[in-house]
Structure formats: structure tokens, C-alpha cells
């Protein structure tokens, strides 16, 4: 048990790295995507709509395989960590863009009109009026996605990233007679130990924001 735990914990830093890096790519990458989805120009909107649907339409694991085995620019190929982070990140950017879009959709029309009537420019209206309200609405789904990403980071094991699930698998194989399922129970416990406090923190943050708003 203790051996299984220490084996699994070796993978923890990579699990956290993949999760955090993919979330960062998704959170930032979702911004240009949502701008495209909300463009005033129909062709732009259609192109971004198609791109987002494409990103979401293919299973994440297939994206990882495509990036890891398929992407080669000259001699350069992605290593397994790079492919995992990029794959999870671009898929996240598509989902987060949709969540941002949902946030913008519920900002009342009067908010933009009031900003226009005051003579605020487009950029100020977006950054100071619309985006903060949209983000506020999107926050619960964005934090939920972060938790999903923590668990989806286990997909990185399929392209050879030695994160927690990969470490559990390896330990199980090396100790077939004695360990069996133990390392997977241990891994499950570690995932829970991270995700439950995160979920609680997210709810506290949300409640605090609704009280101040």
C-alpha cells in the first residue's frame, strides 16, 4: 500500500503540470475563439464555429494520438508531454470558448447599449463591461472543466507521459501477484484528494462573488 502510494505519487507532478498547462492553453486560447464566434462578420463566425465543432467533435484521445504520432514539421516531432499538453489544451480551448460564449449571451443587451450611449469605445465596452460579466457567469462551468481536465490528464498516459495513471499501471504490472488493483485505488484516492478541495474552493469563490455582486 505504502509502496503503491509512493509509486503513484511520482506521477503527481506530471499530472498537475499537464492539467495546469492544458488549462492555461485552453483559458487563453478560448479568448480568440470566442471573439471569432461572436464576430459581426458572418464568414468569420462560420469559420470559427466550424473550428470549434471540429475540435470538440473528435475524442480527446484521438487528438493525442494524431498529435503524437501524426504531427511532424520537418524533423521536429512533439514529445509525449508536448503532445499531451497541446492536445488537451486545444480541446479545452474549444470547450472554454463555448462557456465564455454562453456567458456573453446572458449579458443583457442594455449593458452594451448603456456603454454605447455613454460614448465608451468598443475595447473599453468589451474589457470593462461585457467580459467581466460574461466571465462571472461562466465561472462555475469553467471550474467544473478544470476538474474534468484533472481527470482527463490521465489520457496523457496513452502517449507515454508517466503521470499518476501511468505510474499506477506500471506498478500494477511489476507486482502482478501482490498488488493487483491496489495502485488504482491509491490513484483514485489521490485524484479525489485534489479534486474535492478544488471543487469546494470553486464553490466558495462563486458564493463570495455572488454576494459581492
Amino acid at each position: 500500500m505504502a509502496e503503491a502510494l509512493s509509486a503513484v505519487l511520482i506521477g503527481l507532478p506530471l499530472t498537475l503540470l499537464v492539467t495546469a498547462a492544458a488549462f492555461a492553453i485552453g483559458a487563453v486560447g478560448g479568448i480568440p475563439l470566442v471573439l471569432g464566434l461572436r464576430s459581426r462578420h458572418t464568414p468569420v463566425r462560420l469559420v470559427f464555429r466550424f473550428a470549434v465543432d471540429l475540435l470538440r467533435g473528435v475524442p480527446t484521445i484521438v487528438w493525442l494520438f494524431l498529435l503524437y504520432f501524426g504531427l511532424a514539421v520537418g524533423d521536429y516531432r512533439l514529445d509525449s508531454l508536448g503532445a499531451a499538453i497541446l492536445g488537451l489544451g486545444v480541446v479545452a480551448s474549444a470547450y472554454l470558448a463555448e462557456m465564455y460564449r454562453g456567458g456573453f449571451a446572458v449579458v443583457p443587451k442594455g449593458q452594451r447599449e448603456a456603454a454605447q450611449a455613454l460614448g465608451l469605445g468598443r475595447t473599453t465596452t468589451f474589457l470593462r463591461v461585457l467580459a467581466p460579466q460574461a466571465l462571472r457567469t461562466a465561472l462555475p462551468s469553467v471550474t467544473t472543466y478544470l476538474l474534468m481536465l484533472l481527470k482527463d490528464s490521465s489520457l496523457a498516459s496513452t502517449v507515454g507521459v508517466l503521470e499518476m495513471t501511468a505510474q499506477a499501471t506500471a506498478f500494477s504490472r511489476q507486482n502482478v501477484g501482490t498488488a493487483g488493483l491496489t495502485p488504482f485505488f491509491v490513484a483514485a484516492g489521490v485524484y479525489i484528494a485534489i479534486s474535492v478541495p478544488l471543487a469546494i474552493a470553486a464553490r466558495v469563490l462563486d458564493a463570495r462573488l455572488s454576494r459581492s455582486l
Partner: peptide, 30 residues
């Protein structure tokens, strides 16, 4: 628009800003 102020039926104050910031932000930007 700089010449003309407008007041709406539904107020349309910015809920993400304090009352003071609602009044200060446009002055600074416009």
C-alpha cells in the same frame, strides 16, 4: 454621443462595478 446623455427604463448600471466606478469609468474613458 458625447453631447447626449441617455437614461434607460431598465437603468442599465454595470453590475460588475461599484456605484462610484459606474460614474467614474465613463468620465475617465470618454
Amino acid at each position: 454621443r458625447r453631447q447626449v446623455g441617455m437614461v434607460f427604463q431598465s437603468f442599465n448600471l454595470f453590475p460588475n462595478l461599484s456605484v462610484l466606478q459606474n460614474v467614474v469609468l465613463p468620465q475617465r474613458k470618454v
